[in-house]
Design a binder for these strands. Structure first.
Length: 252
DNA sequence: GCGACAG
DNA sequence: ATCTTGTCGC
């Protein structure tokens, strides 16, 4: 039987309004050497979510460690409330690695959000780590160009910097414990030559998608970085242990 | 009422 | 984000 899913959008909004008071946008004050890239994929028919956290060197832009968390999901996607859907699988994947990361980079917006509390801010506050939002599309605000730099602006506030040329570009906004300028600088430096997405979130995206094929019962042909990963399983997906082990992914 | 709408 | 066939381009 499918478990009940209770989710109140109005209560979620209230939680955001409460938690956003914790956000600090002060300077990072260091040169970050590692970033933890976060993303999630879903096997919708099974109602299963896959959260991936990839610790990435900002010197080499190569992955150095990876955690996967898989669980049933039931919260719907509602624009502005993305975090409530993704955090359930993203946070458990991220917590063991976040102490080792200088900054957390999340697929989605930071303060470039209607209530200034996108998923990257939410993650930063929860993990108490500096965080950056990297989104492929704009959620709120308008585009303004200033001195050759394009910003997302709302109510006179600069919320995000556009890195690259959309749709082959990303909107970068601070999540927590970092400034807009620093967030943009870190994200830009994490884009490989010829690439358009910063490596930490790009790697998290690729790995979570690779694991999704296993969840769907398909065979993972080969993806070199999955061997770096270890997975943990939430309630209701214990039957995935075999296929994951067979694909070379350690299960804790 | 209308347009916009991360993943 | 996911689903999904063929199709267009490097």
């Amino acid at each position: 039987m499918k478990g009940h899913c209770r989710f109140s959008a109005s209560k979620a909004v209230k939680a955001q309004l409460l938690l956003r008071g914790k956000v600090k946008l002060e300077s990072l004050n260091i040169d970050p050497r590692t970033a933890l890239g976060l993303d999630a994929s879903y096997s919708e028919r099974g109602g299963v979510g896959i959260g991936a956290a990839v610790l990435t060197s900002l010197e080499t832009l190569e992955p150095v460690d990876c955690k996967i968390y898989i669980s049933r999901v039931c919260v719907p996607y509602i624009p502005g409330l993305l975090a409530f859907r993704e955090l359930a699988v993203m946070a458990p994947a991220a917590s063991p690695l976040s102490p080792k990361a200088d900054v957390v980079m999340v697929d989605g917006h930071g303060i470039a959000h209607p209530r200034r509390f996108g998923i990257a801010s939410h993650v930063g506050v929860i993990l108490e780590r500096p965080s950056i939002g990297v989104a492929k599309r704009k959620l709120t605000g308008r585009l303004v160009e200033e001195a050759g730099v394009r910003y997302v602006v709302q109510n006179g506030e600069k919320l995000a910097v556009v890195v690259g040329e959309p749709p082959r570009g990303v909107y970068v906004s601070p999540g927590h414990m970092i400034t807009l300028e620093e967030a943009a600088s870190v994200a830009k430096a994490a884009v490989k030559p010829g690439g358009w997405m910063p490596e930490p979130t790009r790697l998290a995206d690729r790995i979570s998608r690779a694991v999704k094929t296993i969840v769907k019962g398909q065979t993972l042909i080969s993806y070199s970085h999955t061997s770096l990963c270890s997975a943990r399983l939430g309630p209701g997906v214990e039957d995935l242990e075999r296929p994951l082990l067979k694909a070379g992914i350690e299960v804790e």
